[in-house]
């Protein structure tokens, strides 16, 4: 019994110790929500992420950028548990979640929007939204939460329409709405504005900012569009060849000649 306690204490102390060191260095006092420690993912002989140390503070809005194949989606899939890590650890709220199944991580407060809009095409918008909500709300409260989520996604009036019949932008909004309806502490968005027009991009940027500011949800957003990144995030992490290449404020990263070079396809 005492062994187990000691072990879990070590688990929970690990990242906090790191955080304390970081705090000492930077004077930053925010609590770490998510931290990866030397995360490696190999597919056969190919290393998709290599020794990635990546952290997200509570309530932070961080963008993850990098050229195609940099390992961005792989990192997100490692955080959600869709992929099993080849090496390294993931800490969430101070607990080691590396060996948990995806649904167990979701119940701890991690939620995700996939790269390709993954709504249930054959089900109505209302049925789609009920699915995340029904886990923790019943009766009148469930009805209210479902209606609110539909309204927040700008889909009032579309309740009985099959989600597959919605436009691409509406599906993106719906999926963000469903992911947010879980009331997570950390929401991972994989390219939420890919293929959207300017107005739709603005609507989603506003939505993300509002969820972040009003509900305190921390975000990790994968995005290529630097204007969009600048419009929502303060902090940016650049991945390149599976490694963390740069990390810092968005203005600094934007003007970094090395970052521009890897995006323009120069030698790595």
């Amino acid at each position: 019994m005492s062994d187990t306690e000691t072990e879990s204490d070590v688990d929970s102390l690990g990242p906090n110790v790191r955080q304390t060191a970081a705090e000492l260095a930077t004077g930053d006092r925010t609590e770490t929500l998510l931290q990866t420690d030397g995360l490696v993912k190999q597919f056969g002989g190919f290393t998709a992420t290599d020794d990635v140390d990546f952290s997200v503070a509570e309530g932070e809005l961080r963008c993850l950028i990098g050229p195609n194949g940099a390992g961005k989606s792989t990192l997100l899939n490692l955080i959600t548990g869709t992929y099993e890590a080849s090496d390294g650890s993931i800490y969430y709220n101070g607990h080691d979640i590396t060996d948990l199944d995806p649904h167990e991580r979701v119940s701890r407060g991690i939620s995700m929007k996939f790269q390709v809009p993954s709504v249930y095409g054959d089900l109505s918008v209302r049925e789609n939204v009920r699915l995340p909500v029904q886990q923790f709300a019943d009766g009148e409260e469930r009805r209210r939460l479902v209606a609110e989520a539909i309204e927040a996604a700008g889909l009032t009036g579309y309740e009985d329409v099959d989600a597959g019949q919605l436009s691409h932008g509406q599906q993106q909004q719906l999926e963000i709405g469903m992911a947010a309806a879980l009331e997570p502490d950390l929401l991972l968005l994989d390219e939420p504005v890919a293929g959207l027009d300017v107005a739709e991009r603005e609507a989603i940027a506003e939505r993300i900012t509002r969820l972040n500011e009003e509900q305190g949800i921390a975000f990790v957003v994968i995005e290529h569009d630097t204007d969009f990144v600048a419009s929502i995030a303060e902090e940016v992490t650049v991945l390149h060849n599976g490694e963390v290449f740069r990390e810092g404020p968005v203005e600094e990263i934007e003007s970094d000649p090395e970052v521009q070079r890897i995006y323009l396809g120069g030698e790595s």
Binding site: T80, T82, D101, P102, H103, V106, S107, S111, M112, F114, S118, V119, Y120, G121, D122, L123, L131, P132, Q135, M178, A179, L182
Partner: peptide, 16 residues
């Protein structure tokens, strides 16, 4: 029905 339609999406809503 959600499992039938999309297993990964359903898992990521917290369902086993």
């Amino acid at each position: 029905v959600a499992v039938r339609e999309d297993e990964d999406r359903t898992e990521m809503f917290g369902y086993n």
